[in-house]
Design a protein around this nucleic acid. Structure first.
Lengths: 336, 336
DNA sequence: TGAAAGCTCTGCAACGATGCAGACATCATG
DNA sequence: CATGATGTCTGCATCGTTGCAGAGCTTTCA
């Protein structure tokens, strides 16, 4: 079961444990002859360093944890991919966990008996957790937040400018002459910060054109899933004066909404135009393909990992708020 | 930076380190009075056990690694979710990594300097790696393979019956009277075992009805991505005698194929019926929704984690080949 | 009353690796 | 030739925890 240790190798090669360690790490000066001799034994026994022991001594694990609400939500899946890639480039591996948007579980992850000590740092995409929870914890491990900024200045944080993104998405629809633009995805309660920022952007776009917002066209959804987008759209279609365009707070909602429209026999974009946020790959292959606002996910991941590692190394200064660029990608669902 | 240790607590509470450890773990008998006194100090200092040290002593980490080709492929994302859930139920956490189907990278993961010693076990969904590679490694950590069985009996293995799944999918199309059923996704080379099994099933379905297979309708693709499905479908449509149905080796290929069909103005399923494998959520919301063969992903994850933990505990017997049930789900893309 | 048994609690060693201080041999230098 | 510098190699202590053996005290019972 257990592999050979430095001791086993040392005994066999008739040298000290320390020398074997030096050979393995290429540290201290070791004569070429001895190095070769030890290397032979290393190979013979198939020695591999026990990383747990090494980590105990060095106080590092080379692992960071990444916690997202739901792994099978494409946006997060794509983000996780980028984070793993970015971390790997810096010699780190990533432990992934999901919370299912369950506040209890998010809290548990940070709490007393968690495995926090196993990781050098934590990337957290919070959904249900509050600032209170975060501050209350032992604060042992460096944290970087993804996609929210409700913790005003207490933590490092990486995200797009949600207000601007939403404003541009809405403006794109309004500029086409659409005048009943609905919004799907508002979350008017404590943990719905991202959604609220997007609602702000939606209102700003109207305000800048001097247009009034019909609040009945703002449909809240507790999560950003396809099914909820579908249901919200059905609700909107049942209104006496249904919308001629929909801004969905993410692509999944938009895909659900498009499904509802197609089923109801509405043409996209002729009868109703649809736009989302996230630029998940699925939107390129849907029928029609989906117009969206694309955050630079690779950049989010890269920056987040960078700051986290800086925090770990103690070279990070005060908590930073990093804003990552986004851009509008026009596809068939709003093509004129 | 570093948190308080057992020693710090012991010193402050005027007891031995061992006693503090006993209180923390509730192990040996400790008088209620002393236990309470120590607990107070534990809380005061906010003590948290150093899991690295504990693991070093116990030779376990409570972590397993899960390696998949691509995290942002929905099937794997959904599978990862299930694995994390299953592992959590057993008190384990999951480190996720992806190989991008790169043989080099898959090999590297198993090789000399990998972090293998950090994990109690490994779940691997191999793509480019060969049996040789697997056998050649130090064989330090228990392994369970997902979705392939090319390592005939050398490793634990969990998968659906790929031949049967493909046969049933193809039969579903043939039973509708379709007579030019194409197949997208064959991989006629060493590491394409899964694809080859599906091709076998495709042929079996024809054979059982006494029908000949037109080999020009079998389009190989190096990966199972949307884009490749789209391109393969375009190729098929350009044939002098194009197909009236397509069996795609996974849902992503099918979604790409449907995109090509829609763009070409073909009606689904009237002109061409489409079926996939995997039952990813996306297929429920596509237009049209996608008929598919659904593997029981939760069961795959549960079984895989179970065997892996049994291997870790030494209670697993000889390598087992576990077959997980699947079922046909008929949706609009083949509705009659 | 004395030995055995039971209950708490403690100290030492160990998991496998690395940091540090030095031992020893060799060599150059004045 | 003595001295110091240099180049190799080694042993001890240590990271924070747990396993083990037993110390010290009280209780129990013949």
């Amino acid at each position: 079961m257990a592999g050979p240790t430095l001791r086993d190798v040392a005994k066999r090669a008739n040298v000290s444990i320390r020398t074997v360690s030096n050979v393995v790490n290429g540290y201290a000066p070791v004569s070429d002859e001895l190095r070769a001799r030890v290397q032979v034994v290393l190979d013979e026994l198939g020695y591999r360093p026990n990383l747990i022991a090494r980590n105990l001594k060095q106080g590092r694990t080379g692992m960071i944890a990444l916690v997202v609400p739901e792994l099978d939500v494409p946006y997060f899946a794509e983000l996780v991919r980028e984070v793993i890639t970015a971390a790997r480039a810096q010699g780190y591996v990533v432990m992934v966990d999901q919370t299912d948007g369950d506040a209890e579980r998010e809290r548990e992850l940070l709490a007393r008996d968690s495995r926090a000590t196993m990781f050098d740092g934590l990337l957290l995409s919070p959904l249900a957790i509050s600032a209170e929870d975060l501050r209350g914890r032992g604060n042992r491990v460096p944290i970087v937040l993804l996609g929210e900024h409700i913790f005003n200045g207490s933590f490092h944080h990486v995200a797009i400018d949600n207000v601007a993104a939403a404003r541009e998405a809405t403006a794109h629809l309004l500029e086409q002459g659409r005048r009943r633009v609905a919004a799907i995805g508002d979350q008017p309660y404590a943990t719905g910060e991202t959604a609220q920022l997007r609602t702000s952007g939606y209102r700003q776009a109207h305000a800048r054109l001097g247009l009034a917002v019909d609040d009945r066209l703002i449909v809240p959804t507790p999560r950003f899933h396809r099914r909820l987008g579908l249901e919200a759209m059905e609700h909107l279609l049942a209104l006496p004066d249904p919308p001629d365009a929909v801004f969905c707070y993410n692509d999944l909602l938009a895909l659900g909404a498009m499904r509802a429209l197609t089923r109801a026999g509405r043409r996209i974009p002729d009868d109703v135009a649809v736009i989302g946020i996230d630029d998940i790959e699925e939107g390129q292959y849907s029928t029609p393909s989906l117009t969206t606002v694309a955050p630079d996910k690779a950049e989010i991941a890269r920056l987040a990992v960078d700051i986290l590692l800086q925090s770990i190394n103690g070279t990070a200064t005060t908590p930073s708020e990093l804003v990552v660029p986004h851009r509008l990608i026009v596809r068939e669902s709003t093509a004129t």
